[in-house]
Design a protein around this nucleic acid. Structure first.
Lengths: 222, 222
DNA sequence: GTCTATAGACGGATAGAC
DNA sequence: GTCTATCCGTCTATAGAC
């Protein structure tokens, strides 16, 4: 209070400035290709501040993921709760489209959002990134709970498929979702410019329609 | 001839040994994380041989992609030729499932193949890799031809969709395909071990069934 | 074509003053 | 909490002998 100017917007604290710059630079250039020197210059903080606040470069990337992923996965589970609580016993199971939307929407909604706009690239790339083991333990707990909650719901909603076929098709849905998060630019290219700035909202609607139809298809002959 | 032992299998030439090691290491650890020292040790060649044969590390990665991608994309176009030539004028268009298979099979078939087994990881990650610009020019020409040939075929096969909707759904199919190529391990995990060593053949059949059903779905309401 | 040796730059991490 | 200065390892690339 003593030295602050009560009319100016205070600059975010050092820790937040580092996280913001890290999210943006890791998303666009990758983890390994982003040096701490480049990162701290962009954040306008001292090089040593990263080690003070996060211990190491690896600790920083873990913090970057934790900050965004916690709320996303919490919302996924809350949406699933809502769907399941709205269903009375004896009624048909929660429909596939609802389950898919509960899973993909919380992640894709960040696409158009000004805050955390860069994070989807990072999250989508996570699945194929060679550095994913740096955040593996962090993610494992959360994703394991997602799996425990969503898999039975999908099994009930798709009684025409055996368990392995459901896994395959969810794998396809996750791949499509990740691709939208990482490669919006490719969409501009394949459409020859007819698609511009795809928003999270339209991505969600289209992916839910596509994914639900794919999940509903008869299983392929062996 | 003068010094070779005619009873032993000759070791592959230096250039091939470098390409093989590079493909394997780039696939598992990524481009930036793989040093030329590690690579040349694994290939049992001298460090300077990379620069002699490929000019630079960047030239090497371009050569790694060119070696595998040329035949894959050639086969995609040949399969499309076959489908279109088998169709007489006046008959219904080439079905969606056939088009999807023509596109995804040549890439996914490498999954179980002993030679070039590592390449799919590399290819699948390509879409989201921050280093993709290092091979962008190389890929652009080939993918542009794929787009020119496949897009009209999909448009004819999916008259219920407008052009942008087709682009979105192909984007989903490509994402699913890429995810299968990079993340077979995830499939083992989500299925709780019930799926082991997914082969290219079963991936193709399942993805074609899923993707064709997704493409056939009615477009979502705006 | 293949090797050794080394240049030249950059990386993450840390000590210690303030 | 923040800063400067620096350690020490690793990297790509190249020069030049063979």
């Amino acid at each position: 209070m003593s030295t602050s100017d009560h009319t100016s917007i205070p600059a975010p604290p050092t820790k937040t400035r580092i996280l913001d710059a890290a999210e943006r630079l890791f998303a666009s250039n990758g983890f390994r290709a982003t040096s701490l020197r480049e990162l701290t210059s962009a954040a306008e903080v001292n090089l040593a501040a990263v080690h003070y606040h996060f211990g190491s470069k690896e600790g920083l990337i873990r913090a970057v993921f934790a900050r965004r992923l916690d709320p996303i996965n919490r919302e996924r589970l809350e949406r699933l709760d809502t769907l399941e609580l709205a269903r009375r016993p004896g009624e048909p199971p929660v429909p596939l489209a609802g389950l898919i939307e509960a899973f993909v929407a919380p992640a894709l909604e960040l696409l158009g959002h000004p805050d955390g706009q860069a994070f989807p690239r990072l999250l989508g790339r996570l699945h194929s990134d060679p550095d994913r083991d740096k955040v593996r333990e962090l993610l494992f707990e959360q994703f394991d709970e997602l799996r425990r909650r969503f898999m039975p719901a999908f099994a009930a909603a798709a009684p025409h498929l055996d368990y392995t076929e459901i896994c395959w098709r969810l794998h396809f849905v996750v791949g499509a979702m990740a691709h939208v998060m990482t490669c919006g630019d490719d969409l501009v290219w394949v459409s020859d410019g007819r698609i511009q700035n795809p928003t999270g909202r339209e991505a969600i609607g289209r992916l839910v329609a596509f994914g639900a139809a794919g999940m509903l298809a008869a299983p392929p002959v062996r």
